[in-house]
Design a protein around this nucleic acid. Structure first.
Lengths: 208, 208
DNA sequence: CGGCATCCGTGACGATACTG
DNA sequence: CAGTATCGTCACGGATGCCG
């Protein structure tokens, strides 16, 4: 087996790219940041990735300590992949990339895939406060854990537990809020976001 | 000519990776963050990159508005590549990557290349204050512009103009400071950094 | 000599088919 | 469901050549 391709530079950024610079790797991390995922789910949410490349990346990530494979207990017996603590620390990298990429993200082309939780990262930066916020878009739901001690986190689908606030909006509004162009209270007043819930977060989101 | 390979996802992070996710691209950005560079300099500081890939990446970056090619006026007539404002905004991405990668950056292997200015990014995060700081390592010199309005910046080699402080240290010390494990004043007291200059930055670096 | 373009061998990638 | 096997294609790395 030939040694895997590396940059061979004594530089922390190059070293990081040795681990996560391969095609698809950072997008797999983005998926797993939303919670544990089965192989088939990953394959479904990453259109274009071939099965062998996905399997190979997951193996690499497991070997490098970015992710682990775990078998769910019955009755939901299935293998899920999950980020390690080390892997979850890549969240700032994806946030920086996403922040930079928002400038180029124009109108959606018909060939572009969309998943609701892809909007969670920009929203995490834009929203202040503390608590569990559930967000509903046309594409689906996701939930944010604001003010968590280990930075912040989010998950796909509805929140499994109690929810402090629930936001419903369309994609364009979500993008504008994530970009920082639009504040949530302003959007609420403009009728572009509906906020429900009576937690402290809900109040602070409704008021400037 | 087939359309270039893209992820086709309506996601700002994926969109960013469409532009800078190719092999070598982010390392070229890292090089250009240290100032304008000629093709040959880039090729020399990126061991392993083939000539055609380097030329291809530079063309892509020019087309995508990340970099520009400019001809220096005589007598130093030469083409240099330079980041655009948009390209310079990738600095947070490289900082996030570098911060994450520092955890894996162990001892230097003999096959690893090193350049002095590769240590500029971690130091930029670690150092507080405002002014021009010149740093001397065994591998060479670089200089930092702390507190610049457009974030921060740095350059390879000695500073072209006036210098507020000058630091000399070895690589291990530089890494520890960049990691945040060691404060500059502590390192000065331990004799691991020599600080010269009498600017405000020099004073603040000497004192806790 | 700087700045590429061309050629070639190898490995990575993408699509599909197939298996436990 | 969760991958492995196969195969064609393309990108990469190395060497060499060209041209101002």
């Amino acid at each position: 087996m030939p040694p895997r391709r590396r940059y061979d530079q004594y530089c922390s950024a190059a070293c990081a790219l040795d681990l996560v610079g391969d095609r698809w790797t950072l997008l797999i991390v983005r998926e797993l940041l939303a919670g544990p995922r089965r192989y088939t789910d990953l394959h479904a949410d990453l259109p274009g990735v071939s099965t062998d490349v996905l399997a190979s990346r997951l193996k690499d990530m497991e070997r490098d300590g970015l992710a682990t494979r775990r078998r769910l207990p019955p009755p939901a017996a299935a293998n899920v992949y999950e980020l390690t603590v080390h892997g979850r620390r890549l969240l700032p990298v994806l946030q920086a990339l996403g922040e930079w990429g928002q400038a180029e993200l124009g109108e959606r082309r018909p060939t572009d895939a969309v998943r609701a939780h892809w909007f969670a990262l920009p929203l995490l930066r834009a929203l202040q406060g503390e608590g569990v916020v559930e967000v509903a878009l046309e594409e689906g739901d996701f939930h944010l854990y604001l003010g968590a001690e280990d930075g912040a986190a989010y998950g796909d689908g509805p929140a499994p537990g109690a929810v402090d606030a629930r936001l419903a909006m369309d994609t364009a509004t979500c993008l504008a809020v994530g970009r920082g162009e639009l504040g949530v209270p302003d959007a609420v007043r403009a009728g572009r976001i509906s906020v429900t819930g009576d937690g402290a977060v809900a109040k602070s989101l409704r008021e400037a």
